[in-house]
Amino acid sequence: MKKLIKNPHLHFIFLGLLLMIVPKLAEMGLFKVSYVTTLGGTFILAIAALGLNILLGFSGLVSLGTAGFMGLAAYLSAYFTVDLGLSFELSLILAVVIPTIVGILVGLVSLKIEGIYLAIATLAVSEILRKTFEEFDFFTGGFSGKTASYPTLLGTYELDRAGMYYFVVAVLIIVMLITYNMMNGRLGRALNAMRGSEAASQAMGVNLLNHRLIAFALATMYASIAGVLYVHFIKYSYPSIWTLKLSLDFLAMIVIGGLRSIYGTLLGAFIVFAVPDLFLKQIPFFSEMSYVLNGVLIILVIIFYPNGLINMFADIKRLFNKLSKGEGK
């Protein structure tokens, strides 16, 4: 029994079940129904941020193109389901595979070079994509944007808002589980070694370019999954959503939440996206300041709490233990 409680995989599933209660609570009138949309959106962004966390946290590379790839997947999925009439499952696969291939091509070009080059290369790619969203009317609807509908799973289960929310939570938990396994397996160890010392990891037989490419492809893939979920959950997509600001928000999420932490990413997404929407909007002064607060939070966390806010719980626990022990004596 104790083993069962300590099993990290079960923790993720418990978390998923906990999150699934939310629409039920909303139905019971405990809080507003619009919160379901906010929370679902937060989880979608957390998926993309998780990919970026693999890239930045484990391999130390910065990408500023997350929003561009996410937008590409969103438009592709909307185009496949609405204009071409493909089934949701098929368009999900296509809309994830195509941006990932684009991402791998970009990675091949820019990953040979060290450090900040990838950030600027992905920034350029993201600008090119955004221009494409604005200009290719037949595919993206231009400035007026593109709409999509709630998907029908397997041709029979038509999802509504709550249904889509359950689907998002399920995908989030699956992605978290896969990430946990990968990062505690061979890939995670190799990436960790690369971050520690490139020369040493090369000597141990880690192919730098391959592993960087895998990390970048994973980040693109997660962003694409998030893009598909976004367009079917929020149901519209404009070029102005997929800007540098969104890519920066992803960076903010993982830095505030905690690098290399899966739960930290979720916490970061909640702080950056949901807290302004759920709480700060109620207070007049803070609603304007949410962007500023995020900026201040990033700087403070980096300087004073470089491991991220997720470690706060462990630190508080340690402090608590220390205090109670002190009293015991």
Partner: peptide, 28 residues
């Protein structure tokens, strides 16, 4: 001045944070 010990990648992200602050204050 307070970021001497901060990891180089994290330093770039600090400037992103500065960017957010400026972008937030300017319209106010």
């Amino acid at each position: 001045r307070h970021t001497k010990k901060v990891h180089p990648e994290a330093k770039q992200i600090i400037t992103l944070g500065m960017m957010m602050i400026v972008l937030g204050i300017a319209p106010i």
